[in-house]
């Protein structure tokens, strides 16, 4: 589409202004607030026991969620692309459910299911606590991050087709060998991209986790909860500092995302 010079400049200005007001100003403001008292003050805020515990908990959740969703994601993507079974359309739709359902609803439904009065509430009586504890937060994060690996791996599987896998079979490779030597290396960049998206989403998850966690500082408080709790306690500076740490993690994920996306489109 050919656009005249003046409208083109106007369009660009609007787009830039939009990004500036919506993205750069809030993020910049937080960074400014975080570092206006110097690096030392920031460092004090992010090395409190509560901060360190929140970071550790967040990373722990990520470390559990990512492998689970990688295995599940590859499995589902393979089933959706290669499988010939009834209910494929249903499965296709259900995978996107987490995109459509608000995380708060996910949290509430988890409480209904696993809470003391829920279907599986009996577990709490034998000492297995899900709600207000790590398993609940992991379940909530699993749910909201479920589609990413599936949706990134699926198109790659479509694109590579199954001829390479058939060739491997005629050369004597069994199913497992074919998966490790042919399928997995072929989808690696799509998978890596899916993993980064999963990590980014898991780091930032707030809605579902805030329902299933009681947010006890130093115990069941993730980084996002820490930001929110400090904000509510009017520890604004501490809140900004925690937010900056969270953004730091997200930034790393974003950089990796760009790298992987470029590789996956090139391969």
């Amino acid at each position: 589409m050919k656009v005249e010079r003046a409208p083109r400049i106007a369009l660009r200005t609007v787009a830039l202004a939009y990004l500036f007001v919506l993205l750069l100003v809030p993020v910049g403001l937080i960074l400014f607030r975080t570092f206006e008292n110097g690096i030392g003050a920031f460092w004090d805020q992010v090395t409190t026991p509560a901060s360190i515990s929140a970071m550790a908990l967040t990373l722990e959740i990520v470390a559990i969620v990512v492998p689970l969703n990688v295995v599940f994601g590859i499995f589902v993507a393979l089933a959706l692309v290669r499988g010939r079974f009834r209910g494929r359309g249903f499965m296709q739709a259900i995978v996107d459910l987490p995109f459509a359902v608000s995380p708060v609803i996910v949290g509430v439904s988890l409480v209904l299911l696993w809470g003391v009065n829920g279907w599986f509430g009996g577990l709490a009586e034998v000492g297995i606590r899900v709600i207000f504890s790590l398993p609940g937060m992991v379940l909530a994060t699993l749910f909201v991050t479920l589609p990413f690996v599936v949706r990134e791996v699926e198109p790659v599987l479509h694109e590579i087709g199954d001829e390479q896998e058939q060739a491997a079979a005629t050369l004597g490779a069994n199913g497992w060998q074919t998966f490790w030597r042919i399928t997995l290396p072929s989808i690696r960049w799509g998978l890596a991209y899916g993993v980064v998206l999963t990590v980014a989403r898991a780091l930032g998850e707030f809605g579902a986790v805030s329902v299933v966690s009681n947010g006890v500082s130093g115990q069941s408080e993730t980084l996002t909860l820490l930001v929110a709790n400090r904000f509510e306690d009017l520890n604004l500076f501490g809140s900004y500092a925690a937010a900056t740490v969270l953004m730091g993690f997200a930034l790393v994920a974003l950089v990796l995302m760009t790298v992987f996306e470029r590789r996956s489109t090139r391969a």
């Binding site: 590579i160 390479q164 491997a168 005629t170 290396p185 072929s186 391969a267």
Partner: peptide, 12 residues
């Protein structure tokens, strides 16, 4: 031994 029309080369 099987040879495919579109080669089925292991690209990686």
């Amino acid at each position: 031994g099987f040879v495919f029309q579109h080669y089925a080369a292991f690209k990686h």
